[in-house]
Design a binder for these strands. Sequence first.
DNA 1: AAATATAAACAACATGTGTAGTTTACTAGT
DNA 2: ACTAGTAAACTACACATGTTGTTTATATTT
Lengths: 193, 193
Amino acid sequence: MSSSLTVLEEKLDPRAKRTRHLILTSFQSLLTEKGFDAVSIQDIANHAEINRVTFYAHFSDKYALLEYAVRKAFISEIEKRKLDLCNYSPENLRTMILTVCEFLASIHTKCAQPHQQFEPLVEGIIKKQISELLAHWLIKSKLPTELPATVATWAIYGLAFHYSQLKIRPTLEQFVEEAFPLVAVNLEQFASE
Amino acid sequence: MSSSLTVLEEKLDPRAKRTRHLILTSFQSLLTEKGFDAVSIQDIANHAEINRVTFYAHFSDKYALLEYAVRKAFISEIEKRKLDLCNYSPENLRTMILTVCEFLASIHTKCAQPHQQFEPLVEGIIKKQISELLAHWLIKSKLPTELPATVATWAIYGLAFHYSQLKIRPTLEQFVEEAFPLVAVNLEQFASE
DNA sequence: AAATATAAACAACATGTGTAGTTTACTAGT
DNA sequence: ACTAGTAAACTACACATGTTGTTTATATTT
């Protein structure tokens, strides 16, 4: 968890950096405007003012671009709160739940038309990050962590997703207050280590 | 939950029934052989010995077919164990966890190459069924059920998915013994109603 | 500044998906 | 048995995706 920069960003020629940035910002703009499903590679290329084929020098497909964009954004949120530099505690768990809720609510707002294949992909990306973070938090534990961490990962994501889909939302703080015990219950043993 | 037959299957002309059946069995066969991503609509049509365009009279796309196939199979498993005809109890919860584990393990075995876009779709389909079943089980409860049911849905699916991905698997019974308390802990209050 | 390396543009092409209209074959009703 | 309705085959087409090879433009090295 020490370095969030990917291979994608190391020692890049300035042209490639520029192009990648154009692709990313165009994608984000079109996502907001049209929704994931309606955005084509040609749309992205037009908006970024690059040749369509150039897209494939950077990303294998639209899904790879989504993964990159979402991961980058989420890791940024994790790092902003220093969640990657701490251990398990109820307070850190609460912050993580809150972060995921905020993130998903923001995605829900920003994406014009949630589509069948968009949300599951976002889920996969975020759950992987949550899972790695929990594994990191619990690394020193002498107790078996695998199943509790698995359940916690899915529960956190499930709750946050539920929150993001609510038509009438309670305040985030209120929601997290109710959600927290449902997750924390399976992680209690790790708080007293 | 009383009727699992969909609109798709009511008052169908025999030709359409035949064609649908051909599509479904061809799909299942190709899924096993090539994996979801590698199967094209033309492949399915060839295997089923129908015209490719005819496919679209029945399913909007490959994903719609997957949803139909997986839902049908899963509902069949639920009905086999009469899980749709009971209420919440720890024993029924245990059976549900076991059923989902078995189902996902079988999918994992049957599908030649799990692909990025396949598993998330399966997940969406199965979670929806779990969620509806839990809602049905807890319908008479006077306590708030929404968040505990949400967490339980995701936890059940998460555990079953985890089990299906294990390279070295414990026995299913053993796994369910360990998994059960992690799910049941949030549903205890409903068992004593 | 010139030479070399590399990213991006360009052109051409193959493949799969999805739509629309017409004709043929099968089913249901009389 | 005949008629009307409907499912499937057929044809043609548009569109998006992804690959390949060549040329042009930009960045780095000498």
